[in-house]
Every structure is written in structure tokens, then in C-alpha cells.
Design a protein around this nucleic acid. Sequence first.
DNA 1: GGACGATATGTCAAGAGTGACATAACAAAA
DNA 2: TTTTGTTATGTCACTCTTGACATATCGTCC
Lengths: 187, 187
Amino acid sequence: MTTLGYAILGLLSREDLSGYDLTQRMAGRVGYFWSAKHSQIYPELARLEDGGYVTHSVVEQRERPDKKVYEITAEGLDALKEWVIQPPVPRPTRDELTLKTYSVWLADKEQAVQLFREEELRHEEQLAHYEELRAWMEGEWQEDLTSTNSPEFASYATLRRGISYEREYAAWCRWVADSIERREPSE
Amino acid sequence: MTTLGYAILGLLSREDLSGYDLTQRMAGRVGYFWSAKHSQIYPELARLEDGGYVTHSVVEQRERPDKKVYEITAEGLDALKEWVIQPPVPRPTRDELTLKTYSVWLADKEQAVQLFREEELRHEEQLAHYEELRAWMEGEWQEDLTSTNSPEFASYATLRRGISYEREYAAWCRWVADSIERREPSE
DNA sequence: GGACGATATGTCAAGAGTGACATAACAAAA
DNA sequence: TTTTGTTATGTCACTCTTGACATATCGTCC
């Protein structure tokens, strides 16, 4: 089983979805911690069905093309539950901006400052979006968030990770930009 | 040019290195923001040399097997300088622990708490290591860090990113573990 | 009727990255 | 003398992931 397989099972454990629906989720909702394109999702669904982790049924639609709606099986749910509590396999992080920073001493100061200001803005915008979502969740899901058994709590927990990540990344970009500006004034 | 190519150029802009040396760097020093195995590095060096970004000379050693030491060319340095100030191509982040968190509502609470405590520890140990390095740099490189033209400043800046990342990740793990423990006591 | 956009499902070639395999020089220890 | 460990360079098959190509249904707008 691939990690993508578990990502799909995680979505199907909450609701039945088509390959198209899964693609939307992978680009949006869960896209900031796991993403995939439809060209990877469709073959993976076939493999999951082959392994008995999901089943599908064709749903005929009148106002749209027909679709295959996938449902997680008992075996699929068991596999997912087991995977969740296993320590994650350590993956190498690859951060291109930090890599660029490693060579920033070679760069034109003004252009470097601009780069980090732009990235700061990107992360602050993402942060603002997450903070909106957070406010909405805390209002709408008040009761669900009192129990960690709810998918709502799980979604909220991942969002808090996103918020923390974006806030720190933006702050670091600001620190780098400020450092260059202060130490090399108008070079 | 691949990102790995620029990673190699970034290392060679600081000092001449062999493929073996580069492999050590990619596993250690810069490994927390970009990493590669020797099986990827050797072919990439050949491509870089083909493109005129690096040259190599064979250094004969008496106490060890001979080695090829690579040196960055003027063209290589130009390419690196240009790349550094370009906005990074947005890569999808893939975080397996956050993905597991998305399905944590299905998990046994005790085992889930254990998972997040273990991960918290991992990140705190990494953080402690980085903080040691930081103290050493701030002491040893005091003068170099006053100018952003120095490779020392660049190394210091990337280290601060690592510190910020590990600190926040550990804090988030702690928050998740605490949440599960408080809201589902001894279930 | 035709064009366009959203919905819907699929394949394929190519690149990035890894683990395993392969070879060889040299030192030190058994 | 053989073995073990480090240094050193390389290849290859395989997996993961993406972008491009391909096809088809259905509604709406011109």
C-alpha cells in the first residue's frame, strides 16, 4: 500500500466519493499536506479495489455524465486504522527557498529582499485564509471539537498545523528580509 | 537545470568538492532542506560538466583512492546567482504525520497519544541539536554575521529556518497529544 | 447547430528520487 | 593472509509524480 492509497482511504472513511471528487479534495481541502492529480488517483483507485480496500458502484446522473462512487470496505477501514498509529516513515524535506537562502550571500541585496518580501506575503495570505477557516470551524463545530473521536476534530488539528507552519514561515521570511536590509543598507 | 543541480552549485560556490564530499554534505549539513544520494549526485555532476557549469580534475591520493574534485565555472556561478533571486516554483508539501492526523479520529486514543509524544520527542531532539549549532555559530562567527555577503550568514539563516520549523512542529505534536489526553481520559 | 465549460474517466511518456548492485583502492586489524 | 571498514565512483531497475494527450456526457449561451 502506498501513502496515496491511505490518503484516499482517509477521505473515503468520511464519505463516499468519485475519482473526480477525490481529485477536488486533493487539490483543495487536504492539498496543503497531501496532494495528487487525477492521473495518479484513478490508477490508485483501481489498485485499492483490486486489493479489496474499496468497492465502487456506478451512479447514473441525468444532468451530468455518470460516475463511479467509491466506498471503503471493512478491510480498508482496518488497514487505515492500523496505518494511522504507525510512526511515519521519515521523508527528506526539500525546501527550495531555504536552498536559495543557502546561496543568498551571492545575490544582489535589493532583489534578495524583494524575493523574501514576496514569499512573506504569500505565506501571510495563506495564513489569513486558514485563520478564517479556523474561526468558522470554532464557531460551527463547537460541540464536535470537544471530542477527539470526530472527523471535525481531526480536520481542525490538521488546520492548526497549517496555521503554525505558515505563521512561522512568514516570520522567518520577514527576519531574512529585515536582516539583509538592515545590514546592507542601499548597497 | 534541475534543482539538484543548483544545490550542487551552491555547495561548490563555497569550496571545491568531490562527488563523495557532496554526498556527505547532502546527508548532513544541508540535508535538512535538500538531500540526495550518491546515485543521483554522480550523474548530475556529469550533466553539470556537460553544460559547462563545473569542471573536474583528478586528485591522486596516497592514503586513499584517487578522486575527482569539482570546481564551479564562471558560467556556473552566473547561473547560480540568477537562480537564487527567482521565486521558487511552488512544490506540493507532503507531510505524512499531518495526513495521519486527518484520520486520527479513527484511532485508539492511547496509541495515538504515544505516536504524537514520540514525534514531539524527535523534533525536540532535532531542535536541541540545532540550538547547539546556533550557539556555536553565534560565538564563532560573530563578525561574519554582521554582513549578509558572507556564506556564514547564509548558513546561519538556513539554520534559523530549521530551528523555527522544529520548534513549531514539536509544539503542535504536544498540542495534539494533550488534546487527545484531556478530552478522552483513559478511554 | 456549434462552441464552450464543467463534469467525468482514463492512458502514457518522462523526470525525480531511491535502494540495490558493482567495482576498486587503501588501511588496519585479526 | 584474509577480512573488514572507509573512501571513492558508477549503473540500473523500480517507484512516485506530473503534464500532456484522449475521450465522452451534459448544460448553457450565442
